[in-house]
C-alpha cells in the first residue's frame, strides 16, 4: 500500500526565552520518533498531556517543522517551503476548540473558506461545499449561523471545511475534548465513516481510550517518544504498562483484566461491550 506519511528521526524542541531574549530552557517535545502511516489507515495516537502528541500532529501538516529528522507527506518534505500549501491541502486538520476554528458567520461560507484559499472556481466550490456538508450530515444547516449550533455540530462543520479541500488525510487533534458525550459520538462516527466510505486516512489524537478501539493501529506516546504501538487489542492488553505512563485502558478491557486476576478463565484483550457480553456468555 501507498505510504501516506513517513517521518524519521523526528526531533522538535521548544525554546523558552527569558526577558532578555536569551534561550533559557530547551524542551524536547518530540524526541527521536519514527512514524509511518499507510493510505486509508485509521491511526489513533494516545498519550497524556505533554506527551508530544499534538506537536506531532502539527508536524504532519507543516504547521511545525522538525528541528532534526524529516517528515514526508505523500512524498513531499515538510521542510521545503514550496510544499507547504500542497501538504496542508492533502493533510487537513481539525482542532480541539470548535469555536476557534470557524472563520465565517454562515456555515456554508466557512466550509467554502478552504477551497477559496486554494483558488478553486466558484461553481466547483459550490459543489464541494454541498457535498462536504452532506457528507457530515449538516446540509440542512448550510445557511445557519455557527453560533447557534451545538459543539458536535460545530465540529462537524469544521470537518466539512477540511473535506471541501479534498484532502487524502485528516488529522483530528483531540476533536472531542470539549464536547459532551453525544457530541463526541457524532464526531467519532463521522471520522469513522469518512475513513471507511471515502477511504480518507485518519489520524485521531485523543486521550479517551474508548475512541481508539476502532483504530487499525494505536500509537502510545510518552515523553516525546513512541512508548509502544500495535492493534488496539495488543496495546490495551498491556494494562500495567499503560497505567505506568498515566493512561487508562477502556473500561471493558479493565474489567476483563480484573476478572482474569480473580481466577476466571477470561480473555484480556476485549474492547467492546459486545465482545464482553460474548465472553461472559461463554463462561459456562
Amino acid at each position: 500500500m501507498e505510504k501516506m506519511i513517513v517521518g524519521e528521526g523526528l526531533v522538535f524542541e521548544y525554546h523558552q526565552h527569558n526577558d532578555a531574549g536569551e534561550v533559557e530552557h530547551i524542551h524536547r517535545a518530540i524526541d527521536g520518533l519514527d512514524l509511518e502511516v499507510r493510505k486509508g489507515q485509521f491511526i489513533a495516537i494516545l498519550g497524556h498531556n505533554g506527551s508530544g502528541k499534538s506537536t506531532l500532529a502539527k508536524h504532519i501538516n507543516a504547521l511545525l517543522v522538525p528541528t532534526e529528522g524529516w517528515m514526508r507527506v505523500k512524498g513531499m518534505d515538510t521542510r521545503e517551503e514550496g510544499n507547504v500549501w500542497k501538504i496542508r491541502q492533502h493533510a487537513g486538520m481539525v482542532f480541539q476548540n470548535p469555536d476557534n476554528q470557524i472563520i465565517a458567520t454562515i456555515v456554508e461560507e466557512d466550509v467554502a473558506f478552504g477551497p477559496e484559499n486554494l483558488g478553486v472556481e466558484p461553481e466547483e466550490i459550490r459543489r464541494r461545499v454541498d457535498q462536504s456538508l452532506d457528507a457530515v450530515e449538516m446540509g440542512e444547516y448550510a445557511t445557519h449561523s455557527p453560533n447557534k449550533l451545538s459543539g458536535g455540530q460545530k465540529q462537524r462543520v469544521a470537518i466539512a471545511g477540511v473535506l471541501a479541500m479534498r484532502p487524502s488525510c485528516i488529522i483530528f487533534d483531540e476533536p472531542t475534548a470539549m464536547l459532551d458525550p453525544s457530541g463526541r459520538k457524532e464526531v467519532l462516527d463521522t471520522a469513522l465513516q469518512l475513513n471507511r466510505n471515502e477511504g480518507i486516512t485518519v489520524i485521531l489524537i485523543t486521550h479517551y481510550m474508548d475512541e481508539a478501539i476502532h483504530a487499525d493501529r494505536v500509537i502510545v506516546m510518552d515523553q516525546g517518544k513512541i512508548a509502544f504501538q500495535g492493534t488496539p487489542k495488543e496495546v490495551f492488553s498491556r494494562t500495567e504498562e499503560m497505567k505506568a505512563i498515566g493512561l487508562d485502558v477502556p473500561q471493558v478491557t479493565e474489567i476483563a483484566g480484573r476478572l482474569k486476576r480473580e481466577g476466571y478463565d477470561f480473555p484480556v484483550d476485549l474492547l467492546t461491550i459486545e465482545e464482553m457480553v460474548g465472553a461472559i456468555c461463554r463462561l459456562k
Binding site: 501538516n61 500549501w85 487537513g92 482542532f95 476548540n97 476557534n100 484559499n117
Partner: peptide, 11 residues
C-alpha cells in the same frame, strides 16, 4: 488558535 486554524486551511 484561529490563526493556526486559518493557516491549516491554506489561508
Amino acid at each position: 488558535d484561529l490563526a493556526l486554524a486559518m493557516e491549516a486551511r491554506c489561508y
